[in-house]
């Protein structure tokens, strides 16, 4: 039973660590499916986390924080969109710029306002997204295993977490069952086909970029207003890039994205848990080995050693009408 509890704990922790990955990964999915490569997820996550925490501090309302965080990331996304869609820029360069500016600006402004090295004050209560106890969690929780899973794994998360999980089927449905989704999948593969069908390539890509901004904004807000209770510089700590790796690993599909992000979140939780623990027969596993597993797995996948990850054909390529 003790082992079971440990697993429940690690899984719970894995879910919490996986949520920002899921949201950012879905964000990247929308953008890249439309043909706009986004390596700026990391920077946008920071932007969302900072704007969310700042406005939650000013107003004491987590919801206003969320609105501010999402607005800020949509603006950042639109800059990337303008560069990628209208200026036909190198999207890698543009994403790199977003990452740098976000990294610097969030810390700079945070420091200028609160003079705590960029950290925002500790938030509490209404300024945060608190855990929601689902109905019957207490009573049903007494049931062994199933009840325990319900109580500790399914119940007790905040609203953003539930939203993240709901957004996966929503994304799937939107992508494969709606007109917008069909057009979006098409524009990432062959924008000329979309253009000649009388549909605006630009309009589609901007829509996708805005959706990306909203989702990655949620991811950032989750970091500062649900996972932590403050913003601090560089707090995304590479999660944006892990989300990018997960996107490659999931081959740009929503359900595999969920699975991959949960796996990567779980690995992260496991690494923390195994820190300094001597395993029988193996000895201590360096925590860094587990932490770098997502990156290594992604490289191995990209190298085509386990299947092949083929990005949307037009991703990263600005659309220019051919003469």
């Amino acid at each position: 039973m003790e082992l079971f509890d440990t697993f429940i704990q690690i899984f719970g922790s894995g879910i919490r660590l996986g949520v920002p990955l899921i949201l950012a990964c879905l964000a990247g999915l929308w953008s890249e499916r439309s043909g706009v490569v986004d390596i700026g997820l990391e920077g946008k996550m920071l932007t969302g986390a900072f704007a969310g925490a700042a406005f939650a501090t000013f107003t004491g309302s987590a919801w206003i924080g969320l609105l501010a965080g999402v607005t800020a990331t949509v603006v950042a996304s639109l800059i990337h969109g303008y560069a990628s869609i209208d200026q036909r820029a190198n999207q890698i360069v543009s994403g790199t710029a977003i990452n740098m500016v976000a990294d610097g600006l969030t810390a700079l402004i945070g420091n200028a306002i609160w003079s705590q090295g960029g950290r925002t004050p500790q938030l509490s209560d209404t300024a945060l997204f608190n855990a929601i106890t689902l109905p019957f969690a207490e009573s049903f929780g007494a049931v062994p295993i199933v009840g325990s899973i319900y109580r500790h794994l399914i119940s007790g998360h905040d609203i953003v977490t539930y939203a993240a999980f709901a957004l996966v089927p929503l994304t799937y449905w939107a992508l494969y069952s709606t007109r917008f989704g069909l057009r979006l999948r098409a524009v990432g593969e062959n924008p000329a086909a979309v253009d000649t069908a009388g549909i605006s390539v630009r309009g589609l890509r901007y829509s996708a970029v805005i959706i990306c901004g909203v989702l990655v904004g949620l991811s950032g807000v989750y970091l500062s207003l649900a996972q932590a209770a403050f913003f601090q510089p560089h707090m995304s700590a590479g999660k944006g890039f892990i989300a990018l790796a997960a996107l490659v690993f999931a081959k740009w599909r929503p359900w595999p994205a969920l699975a991959t992000c949960l796996l990567f979140g779980f690995l992260d939780a496991l690494a923390t848990r195994l820190q300094g623990v001597e395993l029988p027969a193996i000895g201590a596993i360096p925590v860094q080995a587990i932490q770098s597993l997502p990156y290594i797995l992604t490289v191995v996948l990209l190298a085509g050693f386990i299947g092949k990850a083929i990005p949307p054909r037009a991703s990263g390529i600005p659309y220019v009408k051919e003469r």
Partner: peptide, 18 residues
């Protein structure tokens, strides 16, 4: 703070690159 320099660096990449 020193972060200002990172901002400038990012803006240079944005304007001179993207």
């Amino acid at each position: 703070s020193r972060d200002m320099i990172v901002v400038i660096q990012g803006l240079v990449v944005l304007f001179a690159g993207a």
